[in-house]
């Protein structure tokens, strides 16, 4: 964002981007410090990388979800895509035992893109609210995959497919961390391109964007496709990390949305940064780790999670309106 200081408009954007992001960075620092106090050995390279590796699928999902949310929509189908991806990969290996892992991975990514395309087209062309589109898609995917497999996956994921989620490059750097970095870099790059700006404009005000020549539908469809692809990548990592499971993606859609919102991204679109969204995912994972290290009982875990999510977003909302009010002194009501 260093290039953006030249005009007052982009200066405001910097302030607002930081403003929405500040609470999540603060939260992340607090959580990481708390983990350090609880267990200093957490910051040994191995363990820290293991933590990042564990967070990777959620971070990637959050990046995809960010694109959809910032354009003013929701994607509730990502959890189902992850489950479907893992199960389908296992089924594919069941039928074509000696497939190269790259082929299967590409097939999954393609599948994710197709599901995203369907989500996007139904939402834009048929004007179905994305909440409903993706909720329906979730039912359809889960139902179809389990109908096909008779309820439980029948194949096995071989070692070479699982390497991406489980093993490390050069013996110390987990592939998942690399994948996570790559997706992050790509998302940042994307948001700085025209696409990012039009996406943001679409989410901010569809009408204004359309009037100023943005192909609103195409931008949104693309956001859904990218979210589907991100979910497929997450499926490859999750399947690699923990193997075949019929509930690999359960609840991930809500976790991803929570992460994005923790990052100060406003539901309804138009505001927030992708880095903050990914930081939100890290915060969520750090919170889980901290609770686990503290030995908080499994039951209370969700209570703490609920309180922190509400508090963080509430804090973000408060901060945000104050900063915005200060930055455009000409008036205008914060909404």
């Amino acid at each position: 964002m260093t290039t953006a200081t030249s005009t007052p408009v982009s200066y405001k954007r910097v302030v607002s981007a930081l403003g929405t992001g500040i609470p999540v960075y603060a939260l992340l620092v607090v959580l990481l410090v708390a983990i350090a106090v609880t267990d200093p050995s957490f910051y040994e390279l191995d363990r820290f990388l293991a933590f990042v590796k564990r967070a990777a699928p959620l971070v990637i999902l959050a990046a995809g979800q960010y694109l959809v949310i910032v354009s003013g929509e929701f994607d509730l189908s990502v959890g189902a895509i992850v489950t479907a991806g893992v199960v389908v990969a296992a089924e594919l290996y069941g039928s074509f035992t000696d497939s190269h892992w790259l082929v299967i991975s590409l097939a999954l990514v393609l599948g994710g893109a197709i599901v995203g395309l369907a989500n996007g087209l139904i939402t834009t062309a048929l004007r179905v609210p994305s909440f409903i589109t993706t909720l329906g898609m979730m039912l359809i995917l889960e139902g179809a995959v389990f109908y096909w497999t008779g309820g439980s996956p029948t194949g096995v994921l071989p070692e070479d497919f699982r390497a991406l989620g489980r093993n490390s490059a050069f013996g110390w750097l987990p592939w998942a961390v690399l994948a996570c970095l790559a997706v992050g870099a790509f998302a940042v790059w994307l948001m700085r391109r025209d696409f990012g700006r039009t996406l943001m404009a679409t989410g901010d005000s569809e009408r204004t964007a359309a009037l100023s020549g943005v192909r609103v539908h195409r931008v949104r469809v693309l956001a859904f496709v990218l979210s589907g692809v991100a979910a497929a990548l997450a499926a490859i990592l999750v399947g690699g990390f923990s193997g075949v499971s019929a509930q690999a993606g359960r609840g991930l859609e809500f976790e991803a949305i929570t992460a994005v919102v923790l990052g100060g991204v406003v539901l309804g679109g138009g505001r927030g940064s992708v880095v903050a969204a990914m930081a939100g995912a890290f915060s969520l994972q750090a919170l889980f780790t901290l609770l686990n290290l503290q030995g908080v009982s499994g039951a209370l875990e969700s209570t703490v999670q609920g309180v922190i999510v509400i508090a963080a977003v509430g804090l973000g909302a408060a901060n945000w309106s104050r900063i915005r009010r200060r930055s455009n002194s000409s008036g205008g009501t914060p909404s």
């Binding site: 929570t258 039951a299 999510v309």
Partner: peptide, 19 residues
């Protein structure tokens, strides 16, 4: 608190679940 309803009620859901 001006928390989006989606997140707010998801948060209460988590709190109730823990309880």
């Amino acid at each position: 608190l001006k928390v989006n309803a989606f997140i707010a009620t998801l948060g209460t859901a988590f709190i109730l679940r823990g309880w």
